[in-house]
């Protein structure tokens, strides 16, 4: 065991989520064994390692903040971690469950919860950066193995990790995919969405639904204009922006323009 103490320490923490981003580690295949030889994974409940309070070099955080207890936990994780990396849409932007933030929370939470004094902490689902400083955000619903291994390598080598900010459109061009919006009139969020997925949806002949969140400088006005031209109704237009990454400033605003 003595040689393991010299290895960089890594933790994987979970908050409210589907567990899908942790699979970027568990789905590495045999590379998971390579990774565990390179670093000391000290906390990763789903994989069996339990030491939530350990001091680590890199903490990966999945999921959004939904309770007061979550807020205490994330503060402790921040204190114990040299680098804190959010993985996925929930940790980075609140995720699909953050759609609750648009609802009249008071009305239905009081019908759901037995202990109203804790309702404040449960009324919204928030990204990690709403509570603590985040060193690196990995976007995606889900993130993939390439993203997390790239982050580990960069951080441990003292290199600033490269972050994709291009639009999905750029990736489509690189992949020589036919534009679904131009060729078939299919609504596609690619023009405003960050790439990283490999332009999966357009390559599968369907529109992008923005699971990697907004790209750099997204021109949502222009895209909305296109969507109107394709015949989308206001509520369909709103659904495009208020989906998995609804709690990002450009998408919240673009969708709100079509709220009744």
């Amino acid at each position: 065991m003595h040689e393991t103490t010299a290895k960089p320490k890594v933790a994987v923490h979970k908050f409210s989520s589907c567990d899908g981003c942790q699979l970027a580690f568990l789905d590495m295949g045999e590379d998971l064994l390579t990774l565990s030889a390179m670093v000391d994974i000290v906390h990763f409940a789903e994989a069996g390692m339990l030491d939530a309070d350990a001091t680590v070099d890199v903490a990966f955080v999945e999921g959004s903040l939904n309770t007061r207890h979550d807020l205490k936990r994330i503060q402790a994780i921040r204190r114990n971690s040299r680098f804190l990396v959010t993985i996925g849409a929930c940790a980075t932007a609140g995720g699909l469950q953050a759609l609750r933030n648009f609802t009249d929370a008071d009305a239905w939470h009081s019908a759901v919860y037995a202990t109203p004094e804790y309702l404040d902490s449960l009324a919204t689902a928030s990204p990690i950066k709403s509570a603590v400083h985040v060193d690196l955000e990995l976007w995606g619903c889900p993130v993939n193995t390439r993203q997390v291994t790239g982050a580990v390598r960069a951080l441990l080598s003292g290199v600033t990790p490269a972050v994709e900010q291009d639009k999905v459109c750029m990736e489509c061009k690189r992949q020589q995919a036919v534009c679904v919006m131009v060729a078939k009139g299919t609504p596609c969020m690619g023009p405003v969405t960050r790439t990283g997925c490999g332009a999966l949806c357009p390559r599968f002949e369907r529109g992008c639904y923005a699971c990697y969140g907004p790209a750099e400088n997204p021109n949502t006005d222009s895209l909305s204009h296109w969507f109107e031209g394709l015949g989308l109704l206001p509520e369909q237009l709103r659904e495009q922006y208020h989906g998995i990454t609804s709690q990002t400033e450009p998408f919240t605003a673009a969708g709100n323009r079509y709220r009744k």
Binding site: N66, T67, R68, H69, K72, V112, Y113, A114, T115, Y118, S121, L122
Partner: peptide
Amino acid sequence: LRGRSDADGRT
């Protein structure tokens, strides 16, 4: 789910 919070706010 329905939820209840205990004393430390954990749901």
